[in-house]
């Protein structure tokens, strides 16, 4: 390779260097540090002692960890299912060019850009027993009598959070599915039409199979996003009622910044990391094997 050309190529390294260094320092390094910290009794207030596997040992016997993991999984399953179903419905409705469809798309995507925290404050107000519109409406319609304290019962608390999350994120699911659908060649549908296939049949034997890569990606995004839920629980349910809605990230926050035990917090973080890596890998492997077919 000639001199100037090689120099030009080396310039590429200079271009990527700042970003890569930042990623190394603020991401790769912290992952390593987290792993190291998890072997320490590491107080937020300063002291640290090496304790070997003690944090992991404690983690295995910690009922609140397992409970939280179970809850987060349940929440993830419900949110993922709800997002896929609603997302599919909306995507099917707005995928074709039609007068006014652009407006509908905009409306459905609009909540996506609002933060989870902001959306939670909004929900807090709408659902408040005394000043909220929703309980007031329910009372006026005679659906309920007396106080409507949605965050005092596990099913209603979870329902409200799931509705909030679907409202806030389904626009994204819809967009992804929609662009996946639009990428499917029209020839397939025309062939199906010639064969006289029903709508349902067309959906299940053409749209869905060809949409697999998109669906898999939506799945990965939704599952990871749901496993990392924090804001909405921290603000709306505050873990209640009776500690039934504590997602894993809340536990990590609590151990580190309320109990000041960064070491234990780090062990939980590593646990979460491993779970997410396994989940993502499984989903990607499934996607890959399907693609190979």
């Amino acid at each position: 390779m000639s001199g100037p050309r090689a120099r030009r190529q080396r310039a590429g390294l200079l271009f990527v260097a700042p970003a890569v260094l930042l990623v190394l320092g603020m991401f790769v390094l912290p992952v390593i540090v987290t792993a190291v910290m998890s072997f320490y009794d590491w107080s937020l207030l300063g002291q640290r002692t090496f304790v070997g596997l003690a944090n992991y040992d404690r983690l295995l016997g910690d009922t609140s960890w397992w409970h939280s993991l179970g809850f987060t999984t349940l929440y993830t399953a419900i949110v993922t299912a709800a997002l896929l179903v609603v997302g599919f419905a909306l995507a099917t409705a707005v995928r074709h060019r039609r007068r006014g469809v652009g407006l509908l798309r905009t409306a459905f995507v609009l909540p996506v850009v609002i933060g989870f925290a902001t959306a939670s404050y909004l929900t807090l107000w709408l659902m408040d027993d005394r000043i909220g519109v929703v309980p007031d409406l329910l009372r006026r319609l005679g659906v309920v009598d007396g106080s409507v304290s949605v965050f005092s019962h596990f099913p209603s608390a979870l329902t409200v959070v799931v509705v909030l999350v679907v409202w806030k994120t389904v626009g994204l699911t819809m967009l992804l599915l929609m662009s996946g659908m639009q990428a499917i060649s029209k020839d397939f549908y025309e062939a199906a039409q010639v064969d006289g296939a029903s709508r349902a049949r067309t959906f299940f034997s053409i749209t869905l199979p060809l949409l697999r890569p998109t669906v898999a990606m939506v799945l990965v995004l939704t599952v990871i996003g749901s496993y990392l839920a924090f804001d909405q629980f921290f603000i709306l349910t505050q873990g209640g009622p009776d500690n039934s809605t504590i997602p894993v990230v809340y536990l990590i926050y609590r151990a580190g910044f309320i109990d000041f035990n960064l070491g234990y917090s780090a062990a939980m973080s590593i646990g979460l990391m491993v779970i997410l890596l396994i989940l993502t890998t499984v989903q990607l492997v499934v996607l890959r094997s399907r693609e190979d077919q």
Binding site: I246, I258, D259
Partner: peptide, 15 residues
């Protein structure tokens, strides 16, 4: 450990 035991809404005292 006052905060962690008594003030935290997910703490053991309230439960």
């Amino acid at each position: 450990k006052y905060n962690s035991l008594f003030i935290d809404p997910t703490g053991p005292y309230l439960q």
